[in-house]
């Protein structure tokens, strides 16, 4: 099964791809890009490309890949099965971004926000297709953000390719819709088969839709919040929902490089300027350099 | 906290040979600052150890399956008890105008009841001659602080410290040099730098007036 490697270790993320069909190496192809799992507070985000020769686009549409958002999970699985069966002329590739990777990017010192991560992932997948020998002629991309800037960026990156970026592109272009199906199926399977790397016994998987406003998801988060360690790696710690719960129910943790507290320190007492005892000599630099201090008590 | 993380030599933690003589953490008068400072006597108070904490801001411990807010790492290292005894010898010398006295009447401190244990440490009664003049009347010994002998003894301590600094490649120059930077030029710290640094370290263990005398010496 094409996604069996992903199902064995969803937490590991990574790239998964079909073999490049032989016609795609000879004939000009349309390549669609879409994503799944941008909004949920748990699970990976998946970027997918799907491509086929331009003269096979009508056949692709006939597989029923249009309007993927309206499909049930079972229907999506079925249509992914059809795409796999058409593997002699349809190819696909996925990049699975694990939730801890998303959180780390968003929270690291030099912030790498979700939009930048998304654009870079899409760009890398397109490049992967080119490097794998796919004769990409057109690139069609679904976007939630401003389309013009993203389109200009991709055109600059891939001169010589026709690039079209549109909101709701999955409803307009069958190859984007096919990519959407690949991404959604992959994400659904990753969440369903999630391997908790934490040794938590048998954690319940009743996480609802995974969206922050889903009461079932919120309840799951509350049940699975460990006060010192927070959540399992399935959860995106950088999401506002997760951060609020950690603030309210987690143990406070302070880091040396965090911003100073909002309240300024109290001004020193006037009496402190009239000290009776002479100022204490600082410790020898041998001890200062090594952060070694005497103790008055344990 | 109910537990601490501590690195100590085995001698500090040897089991007691007699009941009621376990290792003892106790406060004694710091000879340099005069303030209460934590020390350790091993079983039977044979040896004295100073206790220092490696203490950086924003540190905690995982110890087994617990978390401990207090992120200090304690170090216990052997210490020459004469450094602590010196304070009382100097004080007695000032107060009693240079009278010879028995040690157990000198090394007393109402604020630090463990103070007499300093005299139980191995070989103290023998090595006390490094810092005092001694008289024997009958079977009893009497001691009087000797600055001259003390400075000679401290000079040996400084020289030993200089050797240890060199053999451990401790940078003692006035320049600030991060230990993680490797300097391509061969820069040798001057002997004076070593002596000043060692004097500074020894001064952490003696009263300030004595430190000034030692610097001149």
């Amino acid at each position: 099964m094409a996604l069996s490697a992903l199902q064995r270790d969803p937490a590991g993320g990574g790239r998964f791809a079909s073999a490049v069909p032989e016609p795609c190496r000879r004939l000009p192809c349309a390549l669609g890009v879409d994503e799944a799992g941008r909004g949920p507070v748990l699970g990976p985000m998946v970027y997918a490309i799907c491509y086929c020769p331009v003269d096979k686009l009508e056949q692709l549409e006939a597989l029923g890949v249009a309007d993927s958002k309206t499909l049930s999970e079972a229907e999506r699985e079925r249509r992914f099965g059809l795409l796999e069966a058409a593997g002699d002329w349809v190819g696909w590739a996925l990049q699975v971004l694990p939730p801890d990777h998303i959180s780390a990017c968003m929270q690291q010192r030099a912030k790498y926000n979700l939009n930048e991560l998304s654009h870079d992932t899409a760009t890398e997948l397109i490049q992967f297709a080119l490097d794998s020998g796919v004769q990409v002629a057109q690139v069609l991309v679904d976007t939630v953000g401003p389309a013009e800037k993203y389109e200009a960026k991709l055109r600059q990156r891939f001169p010589g390719l026709g690039v079209t970026v549109r909101p709701k592109a999955d409803a307009l272009f069958p190859v984007v819709s096919a990519a959407s199906i690949c991404a959604k199926v992959a994400r659904d399977r990753a969440v369903l088969h999630w391997n908790f790397v934490e040794d938590l016994g048998d954690p319940d998987r009743d996480y609802g839709s995974g969206y922050p406003n889903d009461p079932k998801t919120k309840e799951w988060l509350r049940r699975n919040l460990e006060p010192v360690f927070g959540f399992p790696r399935l959860v995106r710690f950088s999401w506002g929902t997760a951060q609020a719960l950690l603030r309210d129910r987690g143990v406070p943790v302070r880091w040396a490089d965090e911003d100073p507290p909002e309240d300024p320190p109290a001004p020193p007492s006037v009496l402190s300027y009239f000290a009776r005892s002479p100022p204490r000599r600082p410790p020898h630099r041998f001890f200062q350099e090594r952060s070694l201090r005497p103790l008055a008590e344990l | 906290p109910a537990q601490w993380v501590l690195i100590a030599p085995e001698a500090a933690l040897d089991p007691p040979k007699k009941p009621d003589s376990e290792p003892l953490f106790t406060k004694l008068r710091n000879p340099s600052t005069g303030e209460a400072t934590l020390y350790l006597f091993n079983s039977g108070a044979q040896q004295l150890f100073e206790v220092k904490a490696f203490h950086e801001e924003c540190r905690s411990w995982f110890i087994g399956q617990t978390v401990q807010q207090d992120g200090r790492l304690l170090f216990v290292t052997p210490m020459d008890p004469l450094f602590l005894i010196l304070y009382y010898l100097i004080k007695a010398d000032k107060e009693q105008q240079g009278k010879f006295q028995p040690l157990d009447q000198v090394v007393l401190d109402s604020e630090y009841p463990s103070c007499p244990l300093l005299l139980k440490c191995a070989d103290v009664k023998q090595y006390i001659q490094h810092v005092t003049e001694e008289k024997e009347i009958g079977s009893q010994k009497f001691h009087k602080y000797s600055q001259e002998k003390t400075l000679k003894w401290l000079k040996k301590k400084v020289n030993q410290t200089v050797k240890a600094l060199k053999s451990n490649n401790i940078s003692v120059g006035e320049r600030v040099l991060a230990s993680t930077l490797i300097n391509s030029k061969q820069i040798t710290d001057a002997q004076e730098d070593y002596v000043r640094y060692a004097h500074g370290l020894i001064s952490e263990y003696i009263p300030e007036d004595l430190s000034k005398e030692l610097l001149k010496y």
Binding site: V228, F229, V253, A256 | F62, T66, V67
Partner: peptide, 22 residues
């Protein structure tokens, strides 16, 4: 030894979340 201050003393499922490595 942690590079942060966890403001709590008590049990923590360390083995569940961390793997010790030399």
């Amino acid at each position: 030894l942690l590079p942060c201050c966890v403001q709590h003393d008590g049990p923590a499922p360390v083995a569940a979340f961390l793997r010790a490595r030399p």
